[in-house]
Design a protein around this nucleic acid. Structure first.
Lengths: 340, 340
DNA sequence: CTGAAAGCGCTTACAG
DNA sequence: CTGAAAGCGCTTACAG
């Protein structure tokens, strides 16, 4: 078998032109169904593989999407965005598109230098996982390929975003606590750190307003420093009966802190989180949390980016994907207390 | 600014030929250092991006590596191979190579169908993460690109592999238990399931032999079924004083089982694992385990694949990367017992 | 040190 | 339905 088979080899084998071979293999019109079948047979027999580079050079389409992740989101071996990338790649495959993952180092993020996969024209579009430095995102906006923000959005950005409906989930989760008789409810999360933390907080606040519970300043607890690194949690003097934590990992830490302080979950304090991650199930008690429906978010993101590649003018703005509350064992029903 | 800048545009701007531009930008000899600098300046000014497809078409090099992961290894959101992929991609960047991740579905694995990134000539080489079906691996061997197996090896395979030194780590870990006075030591893991499980077992066995402890059949405990799915662990009647678990996840399950059976870790039973994963730190007590030095494994894998691309004849065979024991709180020193 | 020419393997617009 | 011709943007071997 010849080492490198190209369309001309197939054409010669059948005594036709390579134009017909091209049309047959790419399912374009202009060849009889009979010939198409024959061409495909011969292609298979000869072990033909299409040369994506040659195709790209003519069509100006790479059939690759860049998936960008900031280094800071993958400090953990179990980082959530790794999983998301995997799901994106799986989904892209439905469109015969490959995913090129690229990790944005701290330096590139600070310098707002454009990703290599873009610099080398390897990709038709970009999916950005998780919020980055403002300047970096502006650079992304200026690039000549369609992009989508995943899991965050930015004011004024002309780039479409797909996010979990954090606001509504925060609202629902807090409502759940209120419905179980809680009134002293704290929020754990640094609300300037990311749009997710902030929106979950605002949902929490909306629930307080609607339920005529006043917001207490000391009940909004910082969980990370200016660089986004997690810090030790400070419990308020007057202990709340419930904590809405901006993510499961922080909920996990909080449970440890409470235990240290001699408090029991959920008997003394209820704790809820977000993300439905490993952290929510590997604690005792397992934590009530919000599942963000990542599958839906991923398939939406992939659909949007492919459509934007086909039609770069089209915009989708902010797409919100609703989450689902997963009730577990970290919330006490205070109304039952009063009965007994 | 013109939309699509190519080498000819740069050449015209400077009144030189595109050949000189090409040589200047790719740091090839044949241009004066003075001109090289000028060319790079103009390229930057015009926002030039090299066209990887055109380059590939001429050079037959794609500057992409395929990273293959079987679906079955990423059932977990926190799957270890996601992290490994990330590290590989980070490392590839040092060589200006991009990583194209591809998830092998159960069907493709069973049918041994070649990966799309290969079928479309998008990659110069392949890194296979984790053991796949025999037929699938034979298919990989037959492909016309260099490949490397990561984290497993196969008898008779002509493909080079990079693995943790599972045998030696199993041996060392068991030695540690023996040195702390343990004699009744069980191994938890289905030894036919993967080469890692088997080699860790053989290391365990070597330690037993050397320490003149006889191997007890009932002390080798199955942890997964024929499809590799984890099953409920059966504790032996005569309880061992220590368990060597083939991975942290199983160690984690074992601790739960032991607790259910009313046994305390490490007071009644010591437990050790492998992998240094989240499972080993999210249990109480935190588990003594083996860190596999993934960084080293990854950088070795990347080095090997790039060298093989440059020189496809060259072979490296089986490369073993030593691990490190991380001592935590799940092992009791029985010798102290006797004293007190 | 510099450049004209050929060609990598496709696809597309056009002609028959 | 079929095919000859042109061209995408590079790199390489060769000539000056």
């Amino acid at each position: 078998m010849k080492d490198k088979i190209n369309m001309l080899d197939i054409a010669n084998e059948l005594g036709i032109s390579k134009v017909s071979v091209s049309k047959a293999l790419s399912d374009k019109e202009g060849v009889s169904e009979e010939l198409r079948v024959k061409v495909k047979e011969v292609a298979h027999k000869l072990g033909y593989r299409i040369n994506n580079s040659a195709r790209s050079l003519k069509t100006d389409r790479q059939f690759n999407i860049g998936i960008l992740i900031s280094e800071k989101f993958i400090m953990d071996k179990e980082a959530y965005y790794f999983y998301v990338s995997g799901e994106i790649i799986r989904k892209l495959d439905d469109y015969s598109i490959s995913g090129i993952m690229e990790i944005i180092t701290e330096t590139s993020e600070l310098n707002a230098s454009s990703p290599r996969c873009y610099n080398e024209k390897k990709v038709d579009g970009l999916i950005v996982l998780g919020q980055l430095q403002c300047d970096y995102l502006q650079m992304i906006e200026s690039l000549q390929v369609p992009s989508v923000f995943f899991d965050f959005y930015v004011k004024n950005a002309k780039i479409d975003s797909i996010t979990a409906d954090n606001f509504f989930s925060g609202y629902s989760l807090t409502n759940l606590l209120v419905s179980k008789g809680h009134k002293k409810i704290a929020y754990v999360g640094s609300i300037m750190a990311t749009s997710s933390i902030q929106d979950r907080y605002l949902g929490y606040y909306k629930s307080l307003i609607e339920n005529e519970i006043s917001l207490r300043k000391e009940y909004v607890i910082e969980d990370r420093d200016d660089h986004g690194r997690l810090i030790t949690l400070q419990l308020p003097e007057d202990l709340p009966t419930a904590f809405v934590c901006n993510c499961d990992q922080v909920a996990y830490s909080l449970v440890q802190e409470l235990k240290k302080a001699g408090k029991k979950v959920p008997d003394d304090c209820s704790v809820v989180g977000f993300d439905n991650s490993l952290y929510s199930t590997l604690v005792d008690p397992q934590i009530t949390t919000v599942d963000h429906n990542i599958d839906k978010m991923v398939s939406t993101a992939v659909k949007v980016i492919t459509k934007k590649i086909a039609n770069p003018q089209r915009t989708y703005d902010r797409i919100l994907v609703p989450g689902t509350i997963i009730e577990r064992f970290s919330v006490k029903d205070l109304r039952l207390d009063q009965v007994s």
